[in-house]
């Protein structure tokens, strides 16, 4: 088990979580995961498709329940909550960023950012609206505040989604392949934005990614295989080349088809 800054408070903790699908033919998606995440850390979860990354992220985000084991947030057992409490927990403490952005197309950029506050308080105040404008400005969309979600480019939509994940000031943001649907230039911008928020607001990020660049630049890399933790280390403790060698060829998207060719290039 790995801890950032010994002695600090643990933000999010899993204790032996497993996830088994099916009753007759059992498929083990997670086989006993123990992880700690600290406030303000920027972690990447990498691994092949089917290694259990998304299942883990859904359980961390209280969207799904583990078959066994428990999840703790600030020393409160999340897995003991009922569905209604879970919904409220997600709304107040977790920000979500998805691969397909998932804005509500019926609403404008500003309204999409405000939706988590509507869910929280069933109303919207002038202060919240002001805050949403600030966040949209932070993600560089000041000019597109009143555009419908469908009138924005993929990168713009993802920035709105980032602003939306921040509005209720969560301690942690869970991102499932946030750049999976973006071109490389936009990917870089979105990554920089997440890092900036991470630094400015001390919001922790857990990012599931296939993108080697993002993974290599994270503070921490958690590698999964077959529902287990394969590696878990801080990038600061290794040399950049070492990290790159560990991460790059294996999990970058385009490497799947002809990984040998890429490997050869890198070698």
């Amino acid at each position: 088990m790995l801890r950032l800054g010994e002695g600090e408070i643990v933000l999010l903790e899993t204790r032996g979580i497993t996830k088994v699908y099916g009753t007759v033919f059992k498929t083990t998606a997670l086989g006993g995961i123990d992880l700690n995440f600290d406030p303000g850390e920027f972690a990447s979860i990498i691994g092949y498709s089917g290694s259990g990354k998304t299942t883990l992220l859904n359980i961390l985000g209280a969207l799904d329940r583990p078959t066994d084991g428990s999840v703790w947030f600030n020393n409160v057992e999340v897995t003991a909550m009922n569905d209604r409490e879970l919904a409220e927990f997600r709304n107040r403490n977790i920000g979500f960023i998805f691969q397909f952005h998932h804005l509500l197309p019926e609403f404008t950029a500003l309204e999409n950012v405000l939706i988590p506050t509507w869910i929280k308080t069933h109303s919207s105040t002038r202060q919240k609206e002001e805050r949403a404008r600030e966040l949209l400005e932070l993600v560089g969309l000041k000019e597109r505040i009143n555009n419908k979600a469908t009138d924005l480019s993929g990168g713009q939509q993802q920035r709105v989604a980032i602003a939306r994940s921040l509005i209720n000031e969560p301690a942690i943001i869970l991102a499932d392949e946030p750049t999976g649907n973006l071109d490389s230039e936009t990917t870089e911008q979105v990554y920089e934005l997440m890092r900036e928020i991470n630094a400015r607001l001390n919001t922790a990020f857990i990012v599931v990614t296939h993108n080697d660049h993002i993974a290599a630049k994270s503070d921490r890399i958690v590698e999964m295989k077959d529902g287990m933790i394969l590696k878990d280390y801080l990038t600061g403790e290794r040399s950049k080349d070492d990290v790159w060698q560990d991460v790059a060829p294996k999990y970058c998207r385009h490497c799947y088809k002809d990984s040998d060719e890429v490997n050869n290039q890198l070698l």
């Binding site: 919904a87 997600r90 998932h102 019926e106 869910i119």
Partner: peptide, 13 residues
């Protein structure tokens, strides 16, 4: 999809 997103963001059933 919209309902799913709303629920992910904390909308109760």
């Amino acid at each position: 999809k919209q309902i799913g997103i709303l629920k992910a963001m904390g909308t109760s059933s």
